[in-house]
Design a protein around this nucleic acid. Structure first.
Lengths: 117, 117
DNA sequence: TGTCACTGTTACTTTTGGTAACTGTATGAC
DNA sequence: GTCATACAGTTACCAAAAGTAACAGTGACA
């Protein structure tokens, strides 16, 4: 009755692995939300602080660094006064579109569910 | 030049919010991976420990409780010896299919990218 | 009687996240 | 000139979450 159980890991375990890989890049409480914000528009530091409810400057700064290291976003210093820094999704970052879309749709449905549809 | 910036929040901020809502439920490092595992099959505690690389009993136990509270999975005690407990996605848990599919696909591509395509 | 499998829990440490105050530069108001 | 403001962060300190390892309780089996 149990003889075929090991094959679950062998055959389909890759899915678990790949999901975990994805979450390794998108770890922490804010990365996915930041990427979601940048899907709307490229934004500057303070724009992101405003758009993302609850995030602090420290966390935003740290998460943006991580996302840049992982090549999901670019950081461009503008020659404005005072200095502005613009964050934008890279082409690679844009490949997260389906993930973000799915999450957003599920989030909307979930909100309906918990607020009593 | 800045007059239209506030509308970003007003018009599209809901997407950011809904993504953040979704991540509030799927928070922590393991929940999404656990759900991914349960998409393959209903499983028992030790099965999950085996399938999910790196998780500890403590975290698995805790995350399963959270997922059960949020009605994404059910917990069924089997009358086997020694006692077995089976975890299974609820219908609501199954609504995460698109999210998991998107994450899995992105994870596969990402792995190709970092292991040198 | 001792060991094993299963499903957890507990105590302890490490890592991560949150808060609030601060840095440094430039700009316009007074 | 000096004061307050905006931008893009950083720092020091504290709280919460996650990781590790050892243990608990039950019954089967040798």
């Amino acid at each position: 009755m149990d003889e075929n159980l090991p094959t679950i890991t062998e055959k389909c375990g890759k899915k678990i692995l790949s999901v975990h890989d994805a979450m390794d890049i998108l770890n922490g409480r804010w990365k996915i939300t930041i990427v979601a914000a940048l899907f709307l528009n490229k934004m500057r530091f303070t724009d992101l602080l405003r758009e993302i409810n609850g995030i602090s400057g420290k966390m935003l700064s740290r998460e943006l660094k991580d996302l840049e290291i992982n090549q999901l976003i670019t950081r461009t210093v503008l020659n404005t006064q005072p200095i502005g820094v613009e964050y934008e999704l890279t082409e690679y970052g844009l490949t997260l579109e389906k993930v973000l879309k799915a999450l957003s749709e599920w989030g909307v449905d979930h909100r309906k569910r918990i607020t009593g549809r």
